[in-house]
Amino acid sequence: MTNYRIERASDADSLARKASETIAAQISLVLDQRDRCRIALSGGSTPAKAYSLLGQEHLPWDRVDVFLGDERWVAADDPSSNARMLRNTLFAEGPGASAMFHAVPTVELPDADASADAFAQLLTTICPGTPPVFDLILLGLGDDGHTASLFPGTEAPTIVDRWATVGRGKGLDRITLTAPVLSAAYQVMFLVSGAGKRQALEQLLDPAGSVDLTPAKLVQPASTVVVFADDPALNAS
C-alpha cells in the first residue's frame, strides 16, 4: 500500500514556495551523494509559479538533468507546450537556466507513437535502471484523477512493458511516462491546488479508491509519496 504524507499550504502562492524549497532541498541532497540528479517535472498551470521560484535557487544546476513527465504532441513554441512553460519559468533566467533539459521529441517526428519510442530511448540513455529511475518526479493531479497523461478509461494507464507511451485525452495526443517509470522513482511528489481537485485528491488518498477511476493511484513507489496541497484542495479553512 502506498503511503502518503500531506504538506499543507494555505493558498497557491504558499504552496508554490513550499514545493520549490522542498524540491531544491531534495536536489541538493542527491548531489551531495551522486554526481548527477535526474528529475521529471509536471506540466500544467499549477506548478509554473513553483518552477519560477525553483529556478532562482542557487544549486549546481549544471549537474541536474530535467525531463517532463508528459508533453503534448505540439511544437515547442506552441502555447500549450509544457517545454515552453519550463523555458518561461525554470529556465527563464537565474541559476536554473544552466540545467540540462531533455525535451520530449514531438512534431519533428512522424507521429506521437514515434515520439514515445524516441522518448523511451532517451530515458534509457540518461537514467540508470530497468525501468529508468529518477531521483525525483513531481506530478500533478487532474480533476478526473489522471496524472502525467494517464487518463481514466484510456490505454495509457495499462501500459507496463514500455517506459513511455501515447496518452490520448482532452483532444490532443500526449507523450507520457508510464506507471512503472513513475513508480520506480526514489521520491515522488504531487502538487495539488484548488477546490476543483478536492474529489480527485480524496480518491488518491483513499486506500479503497479505484485505480481505474483514479490512475494517479498507479504511482506506487517504495518511498512515501509527498503531497503538496493547499487548503481549498483539502477542504480546509
Rank of each mutant, 00 (worst) to 15 (best):
G140R: 14
I126N: 09
H146R: 04
G69A: 15
V188N: 07
D143T: 14
T147F: 00
A120W: 11
V192L: 00
E202K: 15
L201N: 06
F67S: 09
G145K: 03
T147R: 07
F190A: 02
A120C: 08
P131E: 08
R87V: 02
V133L: 08
T106E: 10
W73I: 03
A185S: 08
L182C: 01
G145D: 10
M85K: 10
A114T: 12
V104P: 00
A195F: 05
L172M: 15
G196T: 14
V74M: 06
A83P: 00
G129Y: 07
G194V: 12
D143I: 08
W73E: 05
V74N: 06
L204G: 03
G167Q: 13
D135T: 00
R162D: 02
E108G: 08
D113N: 13
G196A: 10
D113L: 06
T130G: 01
S98N: 11
S81D: 12
G94V: 07
A120Y: 11
A156M: 07
S149R: 13
L141E: 11
H102C: 00
F101W: 10
I175A: 07
F119T: 06
P132H: 02
R72A: 04
A148S: 10
P95M: 05
E93Q: 14
I175C: 05
S183H: 01
L139R: 07
F134V: 11
E71D: 03
E71K: 11
T154K: 13
P180N: 09
A118K: 13
D70I: 07
C127L: 15
F91C: 08
I137R: 10
G194K: 12
M85W: 00
A120H: 11
V66H: 12
K197E: 09
G94Y: 03
P152E: 10
C127T: 13
V64A: 06
D77W: 01
G94P: 04
F119V: 08
E71R: 13
F134Y: 09
T176F: 00
T178M: 05
G140W: 10
V166Y: 12
F190I: 11
L123W: 05
V188T: 10
A114D: 13
F91V: 12
A75V: 06
L191S: 09
G169Y: 01
T178D: 06
N88M: 09
S80W: 04
G96R: 12
S149F: 00
D65Q: 04
G167T: 10
R87G: 04
L172N: 14
